[in-house]
């Protein structure tokens, strides 16, 4: 008789592929979809939760961007510091994506950038940054300790652009680069990144 195996790949390459109770949010909607089709089984955290509007008006797009950011954050909320931490983060996002403040020529924040931003915060165990956005719809996280500044542009697919300016004995030093979230601790190591990430910083 053959032995059985019950191990699963730690880095599954294939996205995951029977009638249950109704669906409401991202997981139940996609779970039901996966079951009824048994073909494609990829769980994107945004799923059905994005408001669907055909209205392309800026305020609708910004409301959608806010909703996507919040849904993305909620999917990993059990790993965030506290509900107060989450509430404050949401207030920052509401301010950032306020239609009255938003430059009409800028693209609203894209979902891939929100996902990278949240994955990065949890991975770095970083305190809440200041928030900004690029012209082309990427979130910008900034940390400032005295005159030492770290700015990270969060692009889709865990890609980040970073720039540092720090005061040294010989004056202001700057450095910049592009990498992935996983490599950030390594590339920022020369600049003592804990000054920006730790709560005591």
């Amino acid at each position: 008789m053959t032995r059985t195996t019950q191990t699963v790949a730690a880095h599954p390459r294939t996205p995951t592929a029977l009638p249950p109770s109704g669906a409401a949010g991202a997981y139940s909607t996609q779970m039901n979809y996966a079951l009824s089709n048994a073909l494609t089984r990829s769980f994107k955290p945004l799923g059905d939760s994005k408001p669907r509007g055909s209205d392309s008006h800026l305020s609708t797009l910004l409301e959608n961007a806010k909703a996507i950011f919040k849904v993305t954050t909620n999917t990993v909320a059990m790993h965030l510091l506290s509900s107060d931490w989450r509430a404050r983060l949401f207030r920052q996002v509401d301010s950032l994506l306020d239609a009255e403040e938003w430059d009409e020529d800028d693209k609203p924040v894209v979902s891939g950038s929100s996902l990278t931003f949240i994955r990065m915060l949890i991975f770095l165990k970083a305190r809440r940054p200041g928030l900004g956005a690029t012209n082309d719809g990427n979130l910008v996280a900034s940390w400032t300790t005295g005159s030492n500044r770290l700015t990270i542009v969060c692009k889709p697919d865990d890609s980040v652009r970073w720039v540092v300016s720090t005061q040294t004995d010989v004056g202001c030093e700057t450095a910049a680069g592009q990498t992935t979230i996983l490599r950030l601790p390594v590339v920022l190591q020369p600049y003592n990144p804990q000054q920006w990430f730790s709560d005591e910083g």
């Binding site: 599954p12 249950p20 109770s21 779970m31 949240i118 979230i181």
Partner: peptide, 26 residues
């Protein structure tokens, strides 16, 4: 009840693998 488990790929967290456990009692 319907019970179900499967993999979430990719995991929403870096350096993790995630499994869904869906429990539906009706």
């Amino acid at each position: 009840c319907n019970i179900m488990s499967t993999i979430v790929a990719p995991s929403p967290l870096l350096n993790h693998m995630s499994i869904l456990l869906d429990i539906d009692v009706f």
